[in-house]
Design a protein around this nucleic acid. Structure first.
Lengths: 162, 162
DNA sequence: GCATAATGCATAGCCAAGCTATGTATATAA
DNA sequence: TTATATACATAGCTTGGCTATGCATTATGC
């Protein structure tokens, strides 16, 4: 019976997966808009995404930060210039390479990110506070799965590194 | 036992929900970037989001479209101007109100959206094709839940309409 | 019916996040 | 040493965001 189940499931995902992905990406973008509008944040998702990456990875090269954020290097240069100006990140000379910078989040940047997350939670909780336990479980697991799958370098083939 | 379970769950969600929402919004934004980068789409998420809304809702007023997309009206005016120029949407005189327009998606726009979704699926499937059946189930359910919750007008309190 | 207020959309102006192309300095390879 | 590659900055462009304002139409109040 387990063998039969395993044979059946790949077929299901092969049929459902493409449709799911379209819906998933669309609703993800809607959620991003909901977050932006409900927090009335003066900063953009790119800012929070960048700061989150620095918290997760620690100090990292500017180019690597761009890669992790899935944006071009000049875009990241611009984002960092803005964040540097408000002291949310700092540039550290990379002693191993005279061309490179290490970018690190500052305590001020960590606080800003923390504040944003608090504001976000407060704004969004009313949309989700009546979730049933199993629904909440789905969201928790889906978040975990997505975090794993969107992480840079996890593609099954080498295409993601191309 | 059911009563005990129900009493326990609200407490869990009250503690976990804020943290989950921060992670969820962050990963949603990452997914949007993954989608944009892997499809190499010349169009932005705002375009696909707008076209998707028109498919879902049918012809709708420009201002209502802005509201459904959670952007300001002038922003939507700009987006529609671009979509009108490439014949992905059409403007229809609103016979009930001389100030208003009805905006509808064209067959050409529907095809463009369909093509994008195909391209998206093709690009993203390698990231998700090895999902276990239960993982896939979590994503499917989470997508359904999010679609419900980000829909305009579903907030528990009236704040979303303010 | 007329005056006033409200509404729907367009325009204006600004900013930030995206991109590709190019430039400059440094590091690596031959 | 020279040629090539790499890391980041700059330049220029576009689009999606915003608020403020303008204009025409509609709704409301008297």
């Amino acid at each position: 019976m387990l063998t039969v189940d395993q044979k059946a499931e790949p077929g299901v995902s092969a049929e459902q997966l493409p449709l799911l992905l379209g819906d998933l990406v669309t609703v993800a973008n809607r959620l991003t808009r909901l977050a932006a509008q409900s927090t009335e944040s003066a900063e953009s998702p790119a800012v929070w995404r960048t700061l989150s990456t620095l918290v997760s990875l620690g100090p990292v090269r500017l180019g690597e930060l761009a890669r992790q954020s899935r944006v071009s290097q000049p875009t990241m240069t611009k984002i960092i210039r803005n964040l540097d100006q408000v002291d949310w990140v700092k540039r550290i000379v990379d002693v191993d390479d005279g061309r490179a910078w290490q970018i690190a989040i500052t305590p001020k940047g960590e606080k800003a990110l923390h504040d944003w997350r608090d504001t976000l939670a407060e704004a969004l909780v009313p949309h989700f506070s009546d979730l049933a336990a199993d629904e909440l479980e789905h969201l928790i697991e889906a978040t975990r799965i997505l975090q794993q799958r969107v992480a840079v370098g996890t593609l099954l083939s080498k295409r993601d590194d191309a």
